Simulated scan of single mutants.
Amino acid sequence: MLTHFRMFADYNRWANARLYDACALLSEEEFRADKGAFFGSAQRSLNHLLAADRIWLKRFTGTGEAPTALDAVLHESFCDLRTAREAEDQRIIDWVDSLTEADLSAIISYSTLTMPGKIEQPLGPILAHLFNHQTHHRGQVHTILTSLGQPSVVLDLIYFLRGEGTRWQ
């Protein structure tokens, strides 16, 4: 499973870079336009992903800044948001690279922002959620892009594995 999660950390970085490349083509107005996604715009959706990753990594590592709201806008500007995303993706890769197989079975205790109380779960399934959550909201940003007339962005894992991710096969 450790190799699997390392592959997903690398894929996550790759997919985010491709999505940000596509968003870089949007005007400021398009980037901020509410297109009916869960967080409205590409800007707010990408901020949510960064916020959620920071929340999870704070829970996992005890380090880093974590917002107190899932809809926090951590960066107003696209350039600042992209820089922060790239740093967070590298932080995820570095942290996953530091894990052992035994770490994946460790019980993580945390409380959520939306439900009071303590939750305890093994790290492995929570880590799977982290990467699945990214995929879910990247799909929403993809829909925003196509609704704005942008070309479809190929984000499939299999496409990554056939190209930049061949080392994971």
Rank of each mutant, 00 (worst) to 15 (best):
L127N: 01
S45W: 06
P125T: 13
P116Y: 05
F39S: 02
R85H: 12
K118P: 03
A102M: 02
R59E: 05
H75S: 01
A87P: 08
L123K: 12
T68Q: 10
G62K: 00
D53N: 11
G124L: 10
S109L: 13
A52R: 00
A128H: 11
R82F: 10
I108R: 07
Q90Y: 04
E88C: 15
S77T: 12
L99F: 01
T63N: 12
I108V: 14
E120V: 05
R59V: 14
T61V: 07
T61E: 01
P67R: 07
K118W: 09
T83N: 08
P67S: 06
P67G: 09
E120R: 11
R54S: 11
I126R: 06
Q121V: 14
D94G: 02
P116W: 01
L113V: 10
L127V: 09
A42Q: 04
L49D: 02
R44V: 12
L123C: 05
L81Y: 05
L104I: 04
G117R: 00
S77D: 09
A72V: 00
P125F: 07
A87C: 07
S45G: 10
L81A: 09
K58A: 09
A66I: 08
T100A: 05
H48Q: 12
L57N: 04
L57P: 01
T61A: 04
R85D: 05
Q121K: 15
A42C: 13
A42H: 00
S45V: 11
C79T: 15
G40D: 05
T83E: 10
N47E: 06
T63L: 11
S109W: 03
P122R: 14
A51F: 10
I92M: 09
A102W: 08
K118R: 15
I108T: 11
A102S: 13
R44D: 13
L123S: 04
S111R: 14
S98V: 13
A106K: 14
V73A: 01
A42F: 07
